[in-house]
Design a protein around this nucleic acid. Sequence first.
RNA 1: GGUCACGUGGCCGAGUGGCUAGGCACGGGUCUGCAAAACCCUCAACGGGGGUUCGAUUCCCUCCGUGACCUCCA
Length: 490
Amino acid sequence: MLSSPLLIHNSLSRKKEEFHPLKPPFVGLYVCGPTVYGPPHLGHARSAITFDIVYRYLKKLGYRVRYVRNITDVGHLENDSDEGEDKILKRAKVEQLEPMEIVQLYMNKYHGEMDKLNILRPGIEPRATGHIPEQIKLIEKILSQGFAYCVNGSVYFDVIKYSQHHPYGILSGRKLDELLSGDEERELEGQKEKRNPVDFALWKKANPEHIMRWDSPWGEGFPGWHLECSVMSTKYLGLPFDIHGGGMDLLFPHHECEISQSQAGSDTAPVKYWMHNNMITINGQKMGKSLGNAIGLEEFFSGKHPLLERSYPPMTIRFFILQAHYRSTLDFSNAALIASEKGLKKLLQAKKLIVQINPSQKSTRDIKKWLDECYLVMNDDFNTAQLIACLFSAASWIYSSAENKETFTSADLILLKNSFELFFTEILGLKEETEPTNDKYLDGLMSLIIELRNNARKNKDYATSDAIREKMKELSIQLEDGKEGTRWVL
RNA sequence: GGUCACGUGGCCGAGUGGCUAGGCACGGGUCUGCAAAACCCUCAACGGGGGUUCGAUUCCCUCCGUGACCUCCA
């Protein structure tokens, strides 16, 4: 099936590279999941959808994919003040809950919203708190290699020492001397303990008020943020593994640190292909909590947010995100979402119409060529935007064939139907918002209503027929009078 | 300040050294009792200024603008 090679943009080389798994047909895919301390927002959706596509497409290409996406359930310190507040603890205080209740609450929410967006769940979803012993083990390994040091019950990674043996900054393109000469004015928590500001924590000593804490050889504390991904990715995927994904904001320092930790601990570059999805902007502006424009997914679905003119169903959000390439920034606006919704509706309708086309002696379009094109654009670094354009041109043929402007042989119709199903439903993961009703009562009632209304139309009693159509519309059932009779759409 | 991206028609968004996606909106038409849907047609772009080239939206330089990251923050 694979007529052209799959190209993946590797952040490491900043180029598109041919994809060759380390151990075909197996592929290891690790994606940085959410820190569960708040409701999931549009940014979470973009990352999850991006790699959902990667997962689905690789599987369709015949690879056996082990997909791991972590849940970060350790709080990690935030803000630059001396106290350094822990996100999850902070939230726990606000909501008067146990930290683990916070974690569970938002993890459940995350799963719920991702399900609505038709995002396949990963094969393994490891949590940081479930891998403390493994993290301690890696710290010990790094310490024994001499790339880390202990201070007052905390352990820091020695970036300077590391850079003397391995190149530091290969992923983010950062140069150590530039980092060193940067911003000296910052007074960060724990900075005094570090030998150098560029060093990062592998293990942090827990203050007395810190609730999430574990025993370690260095005293009670909690693991540094970057460590969990190093540990959990390689535990389940081996070292090295094929693809590591995440948002672009994680490129530095998070992923850079992951590389350093693996190199320091095992002298191995952990990942063959690094993939990063771009960010979302809202009305041209960065989306961020501090700006008050981080719209939660729940708010999209309900429409309850000052920036939203109305509600948007999950499939509209999904389609909207897929209409842009994952490495481009995507600008959200009400107008853009409404446009997406209409476009999606058109494709859904086209998909349903395929079976109604009568076969002809010959085809006016080359379906095989079209199918190749679908693969070609997806093979070009998962270009879902172009794939959708391909689907739209097929949709246009489908609509035209209803007016006999295009014709297809029965073989081509089957190919078209199966291909549309494959790319639209299985690879892009798009579907009808409400499942098609297999409700015989509803079907029966609707045909009765349509019959009655058409009788009224025959008698030119348009007052009645229009009233029925109005009432149906209020129930969000749309009646459309076509040449072949009246059809109804939910 | 440093590093790296980006700037495409009314809006969103692909892509390319010459043949310039797609969606939505707008306008005109066909169909229809009317609507809706659909179809056809039209409209329209590559931030400014230089350069390379037979030719640049696509390559280089510069300016302007926007964004991301810069150590615990998806």
